[in-house]
Design a protein around this nucleic acid. Structure first.
Lengths: 192, 192, 192, 192
DNA sequence: AATGAATGAGATTTCATTCAT
DNA sequence: CATGAATGAAATCTCATTCAT
């Protein structure tokens, strides 16, 4: 792993173990097993490290969405693939999300207003991509007529609900098993 | 308004205008129109101020849930009252939630780990209260058989979806009008 | 008791109970049962209060020395009277001296350099008065030839030794009973 | 000299030149020729610096007592060695003791109550060591029957008397020349 | 006279960042 | 490349003193 990767991993561990309030360059360096000064060979500022971490999540999200939506089949199949991938994503990162909260805004709080805005914009691109698939679903008459963005946000929040339960250990069952449940709820709700 | 209230209002304004990263006692004092030292007549530490703010939101949430669930009628009527009240709550505080994020954990990030834990516990009490009403709904055969907490978390996330869209100005329509939409989605989903 | 006296008594109690490091106007006012502002009707500054306390001790010392040395009889009788009075003085104030240390310099540390110098000068006057009686003792051939100041300082330190033991509870016997012992040691030492 | 040593020396100079009331981290840093922040690389708090200074004096005292009492010969020879060493100790540090006062309690006043208590305990160990030699002197029939601690405290105060006179410049003669005088007074007093 | 809330200067302490080695 | 001691700006917090009531 390159040094910069080691540093970002160390940053994650610091967030998980010490909480957001205690991110110091000292702690990161210690966890990364290198000197404080070394951090600054790979990153311009501490915000730069955090920003890189946030962007790595964003990138993973973007890829995850991109490949999910390239799934063969109709809109529902694509959305199903996205749900599965996203749940896995949260599963993989549950430790850090338990500390940070699941919304990207929680991470944005670590950054300057300008950076936060840029991240929100990028995050919104992801939502829009899901939205386009929702639109397909509407065209396919699988999803009722609604603003596609609305459907996208809704689906993502239902995912968050199930990811969050796992993350906060309300639910014990593996996340994988929830894919169909999430999709069913998205489409049919919980009413009898 | 008591001085402590003025300080908390100033803290809110600082969060909204300067972002979480720029909360300083200097900024709070300036916004509150008093000297830095005065803050410490009313709060022991800066964390104490933030903690008071978070707890005021929690308290409002608790009351909102409490009174909603005392609504006459069946479980669905109660949940409807809760959805309406919760959407209004976010509407009222949309400025600060835009900065802070909607999840309570986002606010906890401003505090020490110990304080955050306490807040999470209190937040979970709220979820449990909703859960009990979901349970009633299941008994009334209005909601399908499921772990009640799961239903509660799900409903809250659907609310977040719509509150968040308003807050981040994705949707322009008033939050009030979304109550029935949220409930309908909770019960019937968005499938055709 | 006049307000100023109440304040000085409160100051003593604060020193005894909280130690020198924790003398705050808040603590003094609380202990005196009055508002902080009231302190400043009777004293110009906090240093003024401390200075008054130190000077009250000095005054008591001066009076004690003055009246002792007016005792009828020879130099030894006068010094005996002084030893007795001084031991009683420490007995009476043992609580505060336990905190402050016995030397006047310990109290001087609470004050500005200028004030401290003035106090030292005044303290030295007391030493000189004892010194004059020592000189008489030398003239009476009761004390060996030596610089009188030296004898005075020596006697005072022997008194401190016995006062200190009582104060720090090394010795349990009353201070009164030590008068003759102090004088005997001053004159004859502890050798066999 | 290590940085921590430089800081302690700077602290001493500040005490000597500015007095106890004016010990600030700013002054210490300036005198030490380093930035304020650097102090905190070597000491956790300002109290920690002061505590280290006090303890360095205690350590010197302990060593001085230890090596004195290992002198060959009877109890009197040992006590003589102690007197000589102790007088030299005060001679060496007379500048700071002039400001601080000679008693260890005067230094304790700069510290929290808890720390002061620990220091007093350690100081008392020194007194006890002298006390044991006094006991030997009693056994050797060189010192009259008395509680050994009493003898120890007495001797130390007689030393203080002579050290103090030098320190406060009452006496001009070197401290070294006072060893025998102190011992003689301890054993025989000043009576004719 | 008495109050005590408010002040604000100043003290302590932290920590991101730099730079000589 | 790597270090980590040093920096110093900035943050938190304290408290003697004032002053409107």
């Amino acid at each position: 792993m390159p040094k910069s990767g080691i540093i970002i991993e160390a940053l994650k561990k610091v967030i998980i173990e010490k909480g957001v309030k205690n991110i110091t360059s000292e702690a990161i360096a210690k966890k990364a097993g290198m000197a404080k000064g070394t951090l600054y060979l790979y990153f311009k500022t501490k915000e730069d490290m955090i920003s890189t971490l946030v962007e790595s999540f964003l990138k993973e999200g973007e890829e995850l969405v991109g490949s999910s939506l390239r799934t063969k089949g109709g809109a529902i199949a694509k959305l199903r693939a996205f749900v599965e991938a996203d749940l896995s994503f949260y599963e993989k990162n549950h430790k850090i999300f338990r500390t940070l909260g699941m919304e990207n805004s929680a991470m944005g709080n670590l950054l300057s207003k300008a950076k936060k805005k840029m991240i929100l914009k990028r995050y919104f691109k992801i939502v829009e991509a899901i939205g386009r698939t929702v639109k397909e679903g509407i065209a396919e008459n699988k999803i009722e007529k609604m603003p596609p963005i609305e459907g996208a946000v809704l689906l993502m929040q239902i995912i968050h609900a199930y990811a969050g339960m796992r993350i906060h250990e309300i639910s014990k069952c593996s996340i994988a098993g929830n894919t169909d449940k999430v999709l069913k709820i998205f489409l049919n709700g919980v009413g009898v």
